[in-house]
């Protein structure tokens, strides 16, 4: 995953994408790269879980590729999202469902399918499932944020700090125990845990804000992601 740029975010939604769209073709390319990096995998997994597709031979990968190819080159598509008030992920998920219906109609016209056959095809398209998509998006986004944070620590030659952080925050190991184990002071252990936690949280915050969250809502969004992991259907 590409490392999103950290920085101070004004307390308004979707500023980053709005600014990029003002930069012309280069900005649009940046937005497309962001969308493809952070949303392709959850959309593919979501399509597979729902059985979303156009005809029996269309793989989820091809479906999402076709959807991106048809929409993401158009700056108006993102401009419409900015006006929608939706989180970007929900806009894209809804867009995928629209794309499927469009494709069914297009292919039925090419193949001269009778209206009754077209109805059957359209009836077979699953309803959108926010819970299923949010779960996939949460997993992908968390993995991406974690990868970004770890890559940055590796670059700095401090990947060992991740182990200290993980032991403290995920396993509840005390700072005193960590200090003994890693032969550092308690203050150093605490500092490492906080530094890695901040790095990870900033990486996630960047994605959440670009998705449409306000920076002030990030803690609440983390809790919503936790709930989202319990929702929807499994794909494994």
């Amino acid at each position: 995953m590409a490392t999103p740029r950290s920085g101070n975010f004004p307390d308004t939604q979707a500023v980053w994408i709005g600014e990029r769209l003002g930069d012309g073709a280069a900005g649009l390319n940046e937005v497309r790269a962001f969308v493809m990096t952070w949303y392709r995998e959850p959309l593919v997994t979501y399509s597979r879980a729902l059985g979303l597709g156009v005809g029996p031979r269309m793989a989820p990968d091809d479906l999402v590729h076709g959807y991106f190819a048809s929409r993401l080159a158009d700056p108006d598509y993102f401009a419409s999202w900015l006006k929608s008030g939706l989180r970007l992920r929900h806009w894209l998920k809804n867009g995928l469902h629209f794309f499927v219906r469009e494709e069914i109609r297009r292919q039925s016209a090419i193949n001269r399918v009778e209206p009754s056959g077209l109805n059957a095809w359209e009836d077979g398209v699953p309803q959108a499932d926010d819970a299923a998509f949010d779960k996939q998006w949460a997993i992908t986004t968390l993995n991406g944020a974690s990868d970004s944070a770890r890559a940055e620590l590796t670059r700095l030659g401090r990947l060992g700090d991740w182990d200290v952080f993980w032991a403290a925050r995920a396993r509840g190991v005390s700072y005193e125990s960590l200090a003994r184990e890693h032969q550092i002071t308690v203050a150093q252990a605490r500092q490492k845990v906080h530094a890695v936690g901040d790095r990870l949280r900033n990486a996630l915050r960047d994605v959440l804000v670009r998705d449409g969250a306000k920076p002030s809502e990030v803690t609440e969004d983390i809790r919503r992601m936790m709930e989202a992991l319990h929702g929807g259907r499994d794909h494994g």
Binding site: K135, I139, L142, R169, A170, G197, R223, M225, M226, D234
Partner: peptide
Amino acid sequence: VGTEEQRRAISLLVAMLG
């Protein structure tokens, strides 16, 4: 919540709450 990736994601989120 059975998959390894879901469980790891929960641990990550809890770790992030600090």
